[in-house]
Amino acid sequence: MTRRQKYEADLRRRAGIKAGLSTAAVLLAIAILVPMAPGWPAVKKSFFNAEIFLKTFPGLLEAFVLDVAIFLWSVPLIAALGLGLALMRDAQSPGLMPLRLAAIGFIDVFRGVPVILVIFLIGFGIPGLGLPRPYNSPYIWGTVALVLTYSAYVAEIFRSGIESVHTSQRSAATSLGLSHGDVMRYVVLPQAIRRVVPANMNMLIALQKDVALLSFIGPVEILRQAGVYKSLMANFTPYVGAALIFLAVTIPATRFADYLLNRQRRARS
């Protein structure tokens, strides 16, 4: 080990000790100060009630299966519609202008309206037109609402990916004799989609939480189940349980998105 390496190792060691000490001090302060607050016993009873937690957690996990199911069947639909919209918006030929305008209008509307409003409007409105069962199911129309909203966001992400591929590549491919469709399929999209994977990971994490909004139109998923327990027991602990279940999924997903971003940055530099 050279003197320089030794010096740097020493610096890192000291930085590590400092970081550890300051983190421990903050955690200790929280652990000591919060229970000293006058309302802590009441807060503990209402939010961190072990007995209620144990009683409601299995039911919450069961309800979470519905969240996962809605998420799983929504994702491919969002990906397909989002990509379709991005391609429509990228249509080059002047004759396809109506297609472009339609895509722009769609994206503007569904990106601009709060998700919950779309869910109410589509979830209650369309079945209200008189559809027979089972075609008026809140699962179907709630999913449609989620897919419409999220595909508008995802379309913009795909578009940014498509535009990030330099036009010289399109020109080069065209000069090799590839048709417009083939240029998109074999040259632009493979690069574009790869580049926007981290951004789309963020959308997946957001979607995973927004699935809970479908509870507003009837389905009893985890958020609603927690609300039911809350009302029956007059206690907020089930919400804490639901939050933990969400975190158990979103934190690993977020770390994975970070990992993808880092890998991409290393590959570019």
Binding site: F124, G128, P132, F216, I217, G218, V220
Partner: peptide, 30 residues
């Protein structure tokens, strides 16, 4: 609890935030 414990319907019930939404779901035939 009356629905789930006394009536015990064969299909699980749908739940809403307030009276208005329940009525809306009923109008929609859900």
């Amino acid at each position: 609890p009356v629905v789930t414990e006394i009536i015990v319907p064969s299909a699980s019930p749908l739940l809403y935030d307030d009276n208005t939404n329940v009525v809306e779901a009923m109008k929609a035939g859900q």
